[in-house]
């Protein structure tokens, strides 16, 4: 199925959950916040958060800014 991570299209297998996506993309999970379809998913829900077709996942952090 297709999903979007930070606006980019990705093809992933069915029944994947959020934590697999983070691991598959080799993402350092320190200092990030995750939204799925504009809803914040708190860290304690990452493990069991199922991902559905066309979900839009945003992985967000702090960057330089004034």
């Amino acid at each position: 199925m297709n999903i979007f991570i930070n606006g980019e299209k990705f093809r992933v297998h069915e029944n994947i959950n959020l934590i697999n996506i983070l691991k598959d993309n080799n993402l350092n999970t320190k200092n990030i916040v995750i939204e799925i379809n504009k809803v914040i998913i708190t860290r304690d829900h990452w493990e069991n958060m199922k991902i559905n077709e066309n979900d839009s996942i945003e992985i967000i952090t702090a960057v330089g800014g004034g």
Binding site: N26, N31, I59, I60, T61, A62, G64, G65
Partner: peptide, 21 residues
């Protein structure tokens, strides 16, 4: 010190430092 809140770089090296480090 102010920081902006933006998308992380998903292609980055796992050990790449973050501003908050």
């Amino acid at each position: 010190i102010t920081v902006a809140i933006k998308r992380t770089n998903i292609g980055q090296d796992f050990n790449q430092k973050n501003l908050l480090d």
